[in-house]
Design a protein around this nucleic acid. Structure first.
Lengths: 132, 132
DNA sequence: GATTAGTAAGTGTAGACTACACCTATCTGG
DNA sequence: CCAGATAGGTGTAGTCTACACTTACTAATC
């Protein structure tokens, strides 16, 4: 096996899950990157890559989905905070639609998967042969 | 906006959805590519790229997840049929786990999304185009 | 017997995302 | 003074996808 193995790291997540997650969190409350890095675990995401997160934010800004400003606040290093733009809101709605589709797909898939698991586990387990 | 737009083609689907779908269908019944191409719509997938499908099958074979043989059968062109290997079965189970995680993520996400939509829609602020 | 449509299986390639490794700067507490 | 937390970032290889395109055999029609 080269490269792809039986393991599944974050395999079941949809494309752009980072983007979508960040946009949702920012929609709830404007925030800065490090903050989002901690909040994002609430959505069930473990071991989120900080670099990827910051990068995603910058690209989202380039795409006009969020707007940022620096906060040289009370204590600690300066932070770049983000809020949604109108376009960002649109994107959020559009993707929520896509994600709903995605969930529908997953449910269809898993229902069907469960069915064959059930069936094959009641069999006396034959299935082998034809070798080659 | 460059490249990425508000549109969401198959955006909500998990990575490897093609691979996963094919493996499930083959697990149900061994089949050839063209057949799978037609069956796959049952899972809610529209406009599946035939090239991608055939390619996925070959790569899956290289990865040892499926085994193929030619059928120079009754009528029409020869067809290459596929069945799962033991490793393919493992992969299917492992990936089903990942997809279940994925669904959990989507549900968490959508619940949270729906909450903010509800909140912001009770404000005067119209916000039409909910969820599509 | 030539042409078209349907069945079947592919290749080439650019662009997008992810994952992992790595780097910089500021501030606080011991 | 310096370790660790806070904060933000770059480089890059590998992987997937989407779209466009090609080949071949068979059956029916003109």
């Amino acid at each position: 096996m080269k490269g792809r193995s039986t393991e599944e790291p974050q395999g079941g997540l949809p494309r752009n899950y980072l983007r979508a997650s960040l946009l949702l969190l920012i929609a709830e409350t404007p925030a800065h990157g490090y903050d989002l890095l901690e909040q994002i675990a609430q959505l069930g995401l473990r071991n989120v890559d900080p670099g990827g997160l910051y990068r995603a934010l910058r690209v989202m800004e380039q795409d006009g989905l969020v707007a940022s400003w620096w906060e040289h606040s009370t204590a600690g290093p300066a932070r770049r905070s983000y809020k949604l733009t109108d376009e960002g809101v649109e994107w959020l709605h559009a993707w929520a639609g896509a994600l709903r589709e995605g969930r529908r797909f997953l449910s269809a898939y898993l229902t069907r998967y469960d069915k064959i698991v059930e069936e094959t586990s009641t069999e006396i387990h034959v299935t082998e042969n034809l070798t080659s």
